[in-house]
């Protein structure tokens, strides 16, 4: 069977680029959601601890 080299190159390059793109996207989203959650949790914490010193 004749190998279709253009298809090979296409699979090869789209594969490598695809995997990296997806993983980078996932990295950015993970970092983003971590930041948001950190922010929210710190905010909640400061809100619950703030009334304490007033006493």
């Amino acid at each position: 069977m004749e190998t279709d080299w253009s298809k090979v190159i296409e699979v090869f390059s789209s594969g490598i680029i695809g995997v990296f793109l997806v993983m980078i996207l996932l990295q950015l989203l993970t970092q983003l959601s971590t930041r948001i959650i950190d922010f929210v949790e710190n905010w909640n914490k400061s809100e619950t601890t703030e009334p304490a010193p007033k006493k």
Partner: peptide, 29 residues
Amino acid sequence: NPKTLLLGAGAQAGLYVTFFAAILFGFDL
């Protein structure tokens, strides 16, 4: 440490090298 996601991608690059090698040895796509 979300940077490690890139390492998970890095190792997969090796997989495509093998894909190439297998074609050279006469396997179909």
